[in-house]
Amino acid sequence: MARKGILTPGPTKSAETPTTPPATKSAAARMMPRGAVGALQSSLSKLQENAVQDIDASLIDDAGVEDRLGHDSAAQSQLRDSLATYGQQVPVLLRPHPKLSGRYEIVYGRRRLQALKDLGLPVKAMVRQLDDHALVLAQGQENTARQDLSFIEKASFAAQLHDGDYDRQTIAAALSIDLPMVSRMLKVGQAFDLPFLRQIGSAPGIGRDRWLALAKLFEDSAAKSRAMAYLNRPEFSEGDSDARFEAIFERAGQKQSATKPSPPAPSKPRTLRGVDGKALADIRSTKRGLTLNVPARTADGFDVWLNEHADELLKDLHARWQQDQTPQDD
């Protein structure tokens, strides 16, 4: 549990000198200790912010903006094993929970926090007083310093900040980029919703140009529908994040025939026969459609039975036809 500084200023106001009008001083200024006491309090506050404390992981809640897309179970397992063997070498950064006394919010170090929770170990953390603006700046700059976020994770981070009404200057500062790059990242990040990006994952090998190309393909609703339908296929989750992107890109880019298939040319009637070679029906294809004729005189009741079961038989045939139209992967 974080300890309060021994010189934390109380609610009592300091005396005001007659020569200074009260209106010229803020309430915060009237409460701050002066002289040597004030300097000591400032030094102790800075030391406390930089001091590493052991904090119960169950007291730490999530905060900030989602900066990781997908979950790399292998990397998380490796991190957990490292922490179990060598202990936590790098502290996480927390802030006191703005609404719940005695609790904290994570600023950065989410993967370490989760691994320590799994191990049942306390979290070594620095605790700093940060408002929401300072929180996203600290989170973004720490991620940028690690240089292990992919392009789409940074673009998604920028889009989430933009949706949270942070201005572009703040986004640029959080990601340590210039304003033109903010515009380029937002063009990609805002083209895809977060649930879709979570399913793709970080795609570390996919750069800006490929994501822009996918965004362009998604402008065609049919192309987007083809790609999104593949998300529910079992084989989608078999590959890594880069492979999932490539599979979606391939399906979005599949060329569809611009014209409907030409109707078959009129043909002569042909006879459909049963397994015993007996004639069952005549079938004929014309420009107007397909005609099936079951002569009653030779059907021996088959025509009546076919009429009673026509609905379910036709549905089964149509389902088989739809299955044949779905492209199958090798």
Rank of each mutant, 00 (worst) to 15 (best):
R198L: 08
D167C: 01
H162C: 09
F192N: 00
G189Q: 02
S176L: 13
D165M: 09
A159M: 06
A173I: 06
A159G: 04
P180R: 11
A174Q: 00
A172W: 02
F157C: 10
T170V: 15
L194M: 12
L175A: 02
I177E: 04
F196Q: 06
I171P: 01
I171K: 07
H162G: 08
Y166C: 10
F157A: 09
F192K: 03
V182H: 05
I177F: 13
F192G: 00
K187S: 14
I171F: 11
I177W: 12
M181I: 13
F192H: 05
L197Q: 05
T170E: 11
G164A: 15
R184F: 06
Q169V: 15
M185L: 15
D165L: 12
A191L: 01
T170R: 09
L161V: 14
S156I: 04
Y166D: 08
F157G: 11
D165W: 04
R198K: 13
Q160A: 10
L175N: 07
Q190N: 06
V188S: 12
D165A: 10
Y166K: 11
L179W: 12
H162P: 02
F157R: 08
I171M: 03
M185V: 15
A155C: 00
A173S: 10
S183W: 06
L194F: 09
D178H: 10
S176H: 10
S176K: 11
R198D: 12
S156D: 02
L179I: 11
G189S: 03
S176V: 14
A159L: 06
L194N: 05
A155H: 01
A174W: 00
S176A: 12
V188I: 14
F157I: 13
S183N: 14
A172T: 04
F157T: 12
S176I: 09
S156N: 11
Y166A: 10
D193F: 11
D167Y: 03
F157L: 10
K187W: 08
Q169S: 15
P180W: 07
A158Q: 09
S156T: 12
